[in-house]
Amino acid sequence: MKQETELGQQAGQNIMMTARNVSVFYGGKMAVNDVSIDISKDDVTAFIGPSGCGKSTFLRSFNRMNDTIPNARVEGRIELDGEDIYASGMDVVQLRARVGMVFQKPNPFPKSIYENVAYGPRIHGLAAGKTALDEIVQRSLRRAGLWEEVKDRLTDSGTALSGGQQQRLCIARAIAVDPEVILMDEPASALDPIATAKIEELIHELRGRYAIVIVTHNMQQAARVSQRTAFFHLGNLVEYGDTSQIFTNPRETRTKDYITGRYG
C-alpha cells in the first residue's frame, strides 16, 4: 500500500483531484480497495483493467454518482482542488457541475438537441437570457465537434442522431456547465471505429481545458489518448504512471500480463 500511495502522488504538476485510501463497498462486498491516486489537470488519465475490477465504481466516486446506488458506501478521502468532496458541507449539485460525466452508452434525453445541451446551464442558472444560452449551446456543440453537423437541426430530437453523434452530444451536454473535470466511462465502447476515432480526436482537443479521466478496455485507445495510465486489478490499483512507461516498461508483472493480453 505504501508504494501505491507514493505512485499515486507522482502525478504531474497541476493536481486537480486526489483520492486517498478510497475503498468502495456494495453492501458488504468490497469493489475498490484502498486506492490512492492523483488526477492531473493537464493530462488525460486512463483507467484500465479487466472487467469487474472496479474501474467504473472508482470513477463514479469522483462525482459521487455512487450516492445514487442504495447500498454503495465510499470510504477514504477524495479532494477536488483541495476540498473534500464527501465533506458534509459539500453540495452534490455543485460538485457534479464541476465534475461532469459521460457514460458508456450514449444517453441523450428525449428532447431536442438544443434542449439537451441547454439542460445543465438551465439547472444551474448559468445563462442570463436566451442569447446567452444560445451562445453556451453553440460553444459547447462546437467544442464537442458536433456543431457543423447539427446547426441546422437543433430542434430535432437528440435521440434521432447516430450513436457517435449522440455521444458527442452527451459530451457537449457535459461541457455546457463548464466543468473542471470530465469523467468518461468507456465513452467509445458502443461506437464503430470511425465514431470512436472522432471521440478520441475530441478528447485530444479537450485536453488541457478540462482534466479528463477515461475508463477504457481498449489498450490502443488508452495508449493513444492518455498521458497517465492507472491499471486496476480486483479492486486494487496495481500500477499508476506515465502512459508511455506503463505500456513500454511496466513495473508490475500483472500489468505486463494484462497489457500483452495474457489475461483480461
Binding site: 454518482m65 445514487t68 449539485v93 457514460f103 444517453n107 439542460y119 445543465g120 457535459a174 456547465v177
Partner: peptide
C-alpha cells in the same frame, strides 16, 4: 432507462429536477 436518470443526476440536477 436508468441511464436517463443518471445522465441528469450527473449534470448536477436534483432528484426532483
Amino acid at each position: 432507462p436508468q441511464a436517463m436518470r443518471d445522465g441528469s443526476l450527473a449534470l448536477g440536477a436534483t432528484s426532483s429536477e
